[in-house]
Design a protein around this nucleic acid. Structure first.
Length: 350
DNA sequence: TCCGGTCTGACAAATTACAA
DNA sequence: TTGTAATTTGTCAGACCGGA
């Protein structure tokens, strides 16, 4: 984006911040971030180093700006940066604010329950249909290619190919109670709260942490269908019990290739944010600086209401339900104070 | 000349972190 | 699950060395 040069990071304070955070973590191993997949704590020094690199790159103006060709997401210095550290960034001296879609993946997934999503034919361009997204996918015949041996499995996404799905009969049972409930919860932004209660009830353990709920939702959306019986798949099983028809639809999308659903959702997200919303903004308000971070858009205070309104309108129009938009003000001082409060809390200051 | 050991550079793959 | 960057580890061919 042409706005990127205006971005400034208060590197002195930001570096101080990550330094203190590092100190806090090595003195209190309990404060280290937990890596769910590996089931161990992350290394504070590694976290410090990658944050350091990101700060320096932005500081020196070493920008990277890249749209990947698999799912079409835009990757920049900002997308790669730790969200805490973003608070120290300003644009031409002005504070920034970001608007993001809360529980964006489940929100986008509700599109799969609309019959119009499966309409074939002339839906061109911006129209949100499965057909319009399937062109770029390479077909995954990895399970059968082992004995076929021929090179026919690489169609490399020719536009005339059919989606790698076999939805013989409609799987989007909109009339089923659990589907209604799922969509309703997403609409109200209460899916995580609902799941949190369910997990607590079923497992008895404290899985109420926001991060854990998010991880559980990702597990449902992204993991292979065969991942269901293991101990670690408990949240997935609970979700299946609560929302059987929702689960089945997701499973159908992952049947041949477990990466199909995640890629599809990311493509939908990229088209909405990059093709539809930011294009409209730059057309209507060419002077408004905007920065995308996957499912969120960052701008200056004076453009906040406008950006919010555009996001709301376009998302509602293309997904079919209104999004819950979360506003976050980038405020370095506040983040710094919060960290200091924690340091005092454990008696580190002095 | 042959053999085994060691070092080096180039590149690939795995691992670390980050984001969603 | 996807993507990014940086770092570490692994692989491999070639150069080098000394002993036989």
């Amino acid at each position: 984006k042409k706005w990127i040069d205006g971005l400034k990071i208060d590197s002195v304070v930001a570096l101080e911040y990550i330094k203190q955070l590092y100190g806090l973590r090595i003195r209190n191993p309990k404060m280290c971030d937990w890596d769910l997949q590996r089931r161990r704590f992350k290394e504070p020094i590694e976290q410090y180093n990658s944050a350091y690199i990101n700060i320096q790159y932005l500081n020196e103006g070493r920008h990277h700006f890249f749209v990947d060709d698999r799912v079409g997401r835009l990757h920049t210095n900002l997308t790669n940066m730790q969200s805490d550290v973003r608070n120290f960034i300003t644009w031409k001296g002005q504070p920034l604010v970001s608007v993001d879609i809360s529980n964006s993946q489940p929100f986008l997934s509700t599109l799969l329950f609309k019959p119009s999503f499966y309409s074939t034919g002339k839906g061109v361009g911006e129209k949100m249909t499965l057909f319009s997204f399937s062109g770029g996918f390479s077909f995954s015949f990895s399970s059968s290619s082992s004995y076929s041996g021929s090179s026919s499995s690489f169609s490399s996404g020719s536009s005339g190919s059919r989606p790698p799905l076999m939805l013989q009969k409609p799987l989007y049972h909109t009339e089923k109670e659990d589907v209604k409930l799922f969509i309703d919860l997403v609409k109200k932004g209460q899916l995580y709260d609902y799941l949190s209660l369910a997990f607590k009830r079923e497992l008895g353990v404290e899985l109420t942490d926001r991060k854990n709920i998010k991880a559980a939702v990702f597990q449902v959306l992204f993991t292979d269908n065969r991942f269901i019986g293991q101990l670690e798949a408990a949240p997935k099983r609970i979700f299946r019990n609560l929302f059987p028809n929702v689960y089945d639809l997701f499973a159908a999308f992952k049947k041949q290739d477990s990466t199909f659903l995640p890629c599809l959702l990311q493509k939908i997200e990229a088209r909405l944010i990059l093709d539809i919303i930011t294009k409209r903004i730059s057309k209507e308000k060419p002077k408004a600086p905007i920065f995308t971070i996957h499912d969120s858009i960052t701008t200056t205070m004076d453009n906040l209401d406008y950006v919010k309104q555009v996001m709301h309108e376009e998302l509602e129009q293309h997904i079919g339900i209104a999004p819950n938009l979360k506003v976050e003000y980038w405020d370095g001082e506040q983040v710094m104070e919060k960290l200091n409060a924690r340091r005092i809390e454990i008696g580190l200051v002095g």
